[in-house]
Design a protein around this nucleic acid. Structure first.
Length: 278
DNA sequence: TTACAGGTCCGGA
DNA sequence: TCCGGACCTGTA
């Protein structure tokens, strides 16, 4: 078991920050995730983490995936102390990192997320992977499913998508998979594009509006200047920033601050009922 | 029963 | 450019 001491990271906070829907707590303090076709378990005790992979795989895949070369301490320290709301949000979400997840998975995930609730999003994605993903076995014997590529989704067709509880989003998923296969939506070009160009191309796709495009840019392309405004963030901005959020102060990485705010809003009920000890 | 979920599309003003 | 209604479906 590989052990690492890592700063500014908390698995529960990452799992509850709304950026990933497949990260699952297997036991107390042990989380499982699937990415790049691989299965990983991470255990956390304070700032010491154990990984169910080799040092080589950690360096090749997970170090980047967990965004470990970004110093979140600097980001948190840049928060204006005269901004009590953001200061508190960053304090409570101190262990959030932006995972560098796979672009295709983020496109489909956030297409499904629209006008939807988190438990149903998770359920739909789990079903999607179980139905159309590849069934694999990890080195420790765990069974897991990969996230299905565009080929698998088109092969399954609308008939299979209808069984996943996606509602009216099923046609968005299908047509996006088609667009990637046909080359209308080129993922490699999307990865090379800057934020504005990527956002423009994404919103041109049927079913992807501003908000979903921003989520894809932030979580699938690591354009951390993207600042998705959903119902939660919209409410936060109305209440705490009636004169507008000070984007100029945090130019280039607003998306990370948005995550602190989003996490805070999503989980404040849990904090209030003291189910999570801060 | 109605409202709400990490919205988008579409038609009309 | 802006606005309102429709939209799948599960949960409270």
């Amino acid at each position: 078991m590989l052990k690492k001491k890592l700063p500014d990271m908390d698995l529960m906070q990452i799992a509850r920050s709304g950026q990933c829907f497949r990260m699952e707590e297997k036991q107390e303090g042990i989380y499982a995730l699937v990415a790049f076709g691989k299965y990983l378990e991470i255990g956390q005790e304070g700032d010491v983490f154990s990984f169910s992979c080799s040092e080589q795989e950690f360096q090749e895949i997970w170090r980047n995936y967990l965004d470990l070369d970004t110093d979140y301490g600097i980001i948190k320290a840049s928060v204006d102390p005269g901004d009590p709301y953001l200061t508190e949000a960053a304090r409570l979400g101190w262990g959030i990192r932006i995972l560098r997840q796979e672009l295709w998975e983020m496109i489909i995930t956030f297409l499904i997320s629209q006008n939807n609730n988190i438990s149903r999003i998770r359920r739909s994605i789990e079903l999607l992977c179980r139905t159309l993903g590849e069934d694999r076995t990890a080195e420790n014997g765990r069974q897991y499913d990969t996230f299905p590529g565009p080929e698998a989704i088109v092969r399954g067709g609308m008939a299979v998508l209808k069984t996943l509880g996606l509602g009216y989003r099923d046609k968005y998923v299908y047509r996006t998979a088609q667009a990637v296969l046909e080359g209308t939506l080129n993922l490699e070009e999307l990865k090379r594009a800057d934020y504005e160009e990527a956002h423009r191309r994404l919103t041109a796709q049927y079913g992807i509006g501003r908000k979903v495009a921003d989520c894809i840019c932030l979580f699938g392309l690591y354009h951390i200047e993207a600042f998705p405004i959903d119902t939660h963030v919209k409410k936060i901005l109305e209440v705490h920033y009636p004169l507008g959020f000070p984007h100029d102060k945090y130019r280039g990485y607003g998306g990370i601050l948005q995550q602190y705010m989003f996490y805070n809003d999503l989980n404040e009920k849990l904090y209030r009922t003291a189910r999570i000890v801060v």
